[in-house]
Write a protein that binds this DNA or RNA. Structure first.
Lengths: 209, 209
DNA sequence: CTGATTAATGACACGTATGTCATTTATTTT
DNA sequence: AAAATAAATGACATACGTGTCATTAATCAG
């Protein structure tokens, strides 16, 4: 055991990140109930009270985890949108696939779960999520719809559509996986194909004749 | 105060139902965290320990609440399906509207929330819900899809479609309302119209020419 | 090498929830 | 009306989670 970590080691700079990473893992594996300071500390290899040196309260930790995890996703989506130049249909497909990757296969759904479960007790986090994340997400899909209509790929009514309709199945898939994974697995790839197929058929401009 | 309830009154027969009703209200108003035996008892007007005379554990109460709330919904849906004889499109519309009523405007979503939040800790409830409720719900929509294809109203690919796609937006709306109600209200009626419109357009057999 | 700084810790105080059990008391039986 | 039954209760034991604070000990400055 020559490479064991020194006990009581001082690492002021690295600690916050380590704590957040531990919190995220704990959240993913043991859920919100298991996400206690004691568990986080144990996972991070520090003592429970050390966390208080870097975060005032448990809510601070949650908020930091949420912020951290989400900013990556938004940035990634924006990058794809801005770079893309092909037909809107394919862009839609790519964005939806990204959504599934992050949400269903990655662990972003954990935040979703936390919001549903404990949102009532943390109105500030709920507001943060709504204003910073979801509004931007909706805007992305709204832009997608407008673009599709402008180019004649989508039927005109798509302009008036609530863009959240488009992402609903992905949210559903993420939650289903979280909750019913042990009972019955969801074939994500197949589900995603169905999702895209129905939505695209529902949006497309019917061929003229 | 001549109509005040007698203290320590004995009502063996009525107690379980009263307890469940109190638990459901507490769940709806204060969330899972607030749904403690103390709160349930206070709301039901009995002492906390009385609950233990009728339910062994907290999980028993949860399961009973879930069972109770769901059986009504399934029965109602089945009744509508069996009675209906018109075009599938309208039947689909009616069923979706029922779903929104129960899930978004009623308090059935509370169970959804509980599943997402605490499912990890209650695998029996998760299994019960999957087997008894969701599978039946899926079957209903599957039947709807098959019927639509048989009658030529829906395109053939609808047979292969995962029926859960169709209900996803309703689930989304229910959760959105639960979580983001205070921050930004969802116009349920409008959202539901969009839901139905896109899905129907996505399913319909394109007119022949 | 010695003392100062402060990251890290363990002990403590507090609050809250669950579940058990002896006791109280409303209701029923005789 | 008195005794028996059992519904309802309050006190108790236990467990766990948060947050504070004095103490310990790793690191740095002189």
């Amino acid at each position: 055991m020559s490479d064991r970590v020194k006990r009581n080691e001082r690492r002021k700079a690295e600690r916050p990140e380590e704590i957040l990473e531990a919190a995220r893992q704990e959240l993913a594996e043991n859920g919100i109930a298991g996400c206690t300071f004691a568990n986080i500390a144990a996972r991070a290899g520090i003592s429970r009270t050390t966390i208080y040196l870097y975060f005032k309260t448990k809510q601070d930790v949650f908020e930091a985890v949420a912020r951290n995890m989400v900013e990556q996703t938004i940035d990634a989506a924006d990058a794809v949108i801005d770079a893309y130049e092909g037909p809107v249909e394919l862009l839609f497909e790519r964005i939806v696939e990204m959504l599934y990757q992050r949400l269903v296969e990655g662990y972003a759904a954990v935040i979703l779960k936390a919001l549903v479960a404990e949102g009532q007790d943390h109105p500030e986090i709920v507001r943060f999520y709504h204003d910073e994340i979801l509004s931007k997400g909706s805007a992305v899909f709204k832009k997608l719809l407008d673009l599709g209509v402008e180019r004649g790929e989508f039927a005109p009514f798509a302009r008036e559509l609530d863009p959240r309709i488009l992402v609903s199945p992905a949210i559903f898939a993420a939650l289903w996986t979280l909750v019913f994974q042990p009972v019955s697995k969801l074939d994500v790839a197949s589900f995603r194909r169905d999702h895209i197929q129905v939505m695209m058929k529902g949006l497309k401009q019917p061929p003229e004749n």
